[in-house]
């Protein structure tokens, strides 16, 4: 999204970069806060027949600010044997991976940060950087719980990266492009959103991002009954908060990616996808679709108990990966035949 596009001036490079950073921060933090409040605070409470936060602001809407203030005040504790640099840097690695994901998300015909020809490929590649951050956290903490949690997370994320990528391949075959905007345009041309022809792929994608986000029922890396909180055990204060933001921001971004791939991104049926107005309502439409997918993620999170480690690996390698390969083959055959 260029500033010139909105202001009809051509700002210097640094102004444009700063503006982009600011918009990027808002674009990540606002949906994240919305998801945490809507789903983690409120929907989860209602599904457990309680009210959730009610005191801070009307219906607890300011609770997030209160939590933020609380984490800021806390001491930033380093374990005495920790590898200090690795320990300190880990949350930022996770966060950077999230912020880089947003870069390729289009929210309108001209509303985007960068228009990469290999957008979805870039997103899948960048999303796996977070594994490194989690491994760094597990290793740097010098604690057996953290190490076990980090290794579990690495095993899980690698196992579920495959079905995730393979389920995306189905969409890519149908769209004939790796460009995120191209995929959105292909859905507009195709007539229906890819969730209909790629329903199997959508299901695999949902399960895989659930595991990628280490949300229950796939939260073995932080299994509190076995590992305290896994790789987060030794973190406190602001660094814990960064991990927390990273977790839910990634949930928001992955939901948005899912909305782009399967629910037609910023487009609305029967409205010209390239109309000028879509630059302004496109982000809202995308946010609405993102909340729809996030709703599914959090609904599963709230409903299901945790898998066992071996069940999780079996599900990925023996079931999801063959299924997604089958999905690719069927999609390819249809693409060639019709």
């Amino acid at each position: 999204m260029t500033l010139a596009h909105f202001l009809a001036v051509n700002p210097p490079y640094w102004v444009e970069t700063l503006t982009k950073i600011g918009i990027g921060l808002v674009a990540v933090l606002l949906p994240t806060g919305a998801l945490v409040y809507l789903f983690l605070f409120k929907m989860m409470s209602f599904m457990q027949s309680r009210l959730g936060p009610m005191e801070a602001g009307p219906y607890g809407q300011l609770q997030l600010l209160a939590e933020f203030g609380k984490f800021l005040q806390k001491e930033d504790i380093f374990p005495s044997k920790a590898d200090r640099f690795v320990f300190a840097a880990a949350p930022f690695v996770v966060l950077v991976s999230t912020f880089m994901l947003v870069l390729v998300l289009p929210a309108g015909p001209d509303t985007h940060f960068i228009d990469l020809n290999t957008g979805i490929y870039f997103a899948m590649a960048v999303s796996s950087i977070s594994v490194i951050g989690i491994l760094m956290a597990g290793w740097g903490s010098a604690s057996k719980y953290s190490l076990l949690g980090g290794i579990r997370a690495a095993g899980q994320l690698i196992a579920y990266e495959l079905p995730l990528v393979l389920s995306v391949v189905g969409v890519v075959i149908m769209a004939g492009t790796l460009n995120m905007k191209g995929i959105v345009a292909a859905q507009a041309d195709f007539g229906v959103w890819f969730i209909i022809p790629q329903f199997l792929g959508f299901l695999i994608f949902l399960v895989a991002i659930q595991a990628e986000l280490t949300q229950p029922p796939f939260d073995m890396p932080v299994a509190e009954s076995e590992l305290v909180t896994g790789y987060l055990t030794e973190y406190s204060g602001i660094r814990f908060l960064l991990f927390f933001i990273g977790e839910f921001a990634t949930a928001a971004v992955f939901s948005a990616i899912g909305a782009t791939l399967f629910l037609g991104g910023w487009t609305i049926p029967f409205v010209d996808a390239n109309a000028e107005i879509m630059d302004y309502i496109g982000p809202l439409v995308l946010a609405g679709k993102m909340i729809l997918i996030a709703f599914l993620i959090f609904w599963f999170r709230i409903t299901y108990p945790r898998f066992r480690e071996d069940q999780l690996q079996r599900l990925a390698w023996k079931f999801l990966i063959p299924l997604s390969l089958f999905n690719i083959v069927v999609t390819a055959i249809f693409k060639v035949v019709f």
Binding site: M43, F46, M47, S49, W299, F300, T303, Y304
Partner: peptide, 17 residues
């Protein structure tokens, strides 16, 4: 059984709201 589970949480949600 997993679908029934989703139903249980959804039902509780509507009963609460």
């Amino acid at each position: 059984g997993m679908l029934v589970g989703l139903g249980v949480t959804a039902k509780t949600f509507f009963k609460t709201v």
